[in-house]
């Protein structure tokens, strides 16, 4: 290796002597760009010891749907949320997670924010109906966790949602 570089340098020296002034002479070394792989284990699912299992059924199916690029609650959503609020008022030791989602159209970060606004809209309704903010966790998965995998309006409509758990 050393010998070859020495050789190259010699060639260069000779080239420099003979070349005309307009010629470009360069010398460089490759960058290694080595990579270390990291594997992460997801945090275990949220501890659920506080949940009153008798009333869990009320929440399991509570999913609120939205129109494209919209965060407003529909009249049908309000009916569902009324029963969620009632159940939460009846079970004061019960806390909930609101996870907002978007369909795949549009940019990922904007959809993450959109999912958050949808979950916030649900949270605000529940707060107006007497549920304390500290009983609610609000988050978004944007377009990352679709329920339906199709590329059609029917699938998109299923994916624009807030899941209440």
């Amino acid at each position: 290796m050393f010998f070859s570089k020495f050789n190259f340098n010699l060639i260069f020296f000779l080239l420099l002597l003979t070349s005309c002034s307009s010629m470009n002479v360069t010398e460089e070394t490759v960058y290694s760009g080595d990579v270390k792989t990291v594997q992460v284990q997801a945090a275990s699912t949220i501890e659920s010891e506080d949940i009153n299992y008798d009333s869990e059924a009320v929440f399991a199916n509570a999913t609120i749907y939205f129109d494209f690029d919209k965060t407003e609650l529909t009249s049908k959503s309000l009916q569902i949320l009324k029963s969620v609020a009632d159940a939460l008022n009846e079970n004061s030791n019960l806390n909930i997670v609101l996870a907002g989602h978007a369909d795949e159209r549009g940019t990922r970060e904007y959809n993450l924010a959109l999912g958050q606004r949808r979950a916030e809209a649900v949270s605000q309704y529940l707060e107006l109906n007497g549920i304390k903010k500290n009983r609610i966790v609000v988050k978004s998965f944007g377009e990352e966790m679709p329920l339906a995998l199709g590329n059609d309006e029917e699938s998109y409509a299923k994916n624009r949602r807030v899941e209440i758990n």
Binding site: K5, F8, F12, L15, S19, C20, S22, M23, N24, V25, T26, E27, E28, T29, V30, Y31, S32, G33
Partner: peptide, 26 residues
């Protein structure tokens, strides 16, 4: 009818693709 560039790229072990990419870029 003339040479306009002469270049040397020093490689490092197992990086022959990057060596070729450096030449391409030059």
């Amino acid at each position: 009818g003339s040479k306009i560039r002469t270049s040397t790229v020093y490689g490092i072990p197992n990086k022959n693709r990057q060596l070729a990419h450096y030449v391409s870029d030059g």
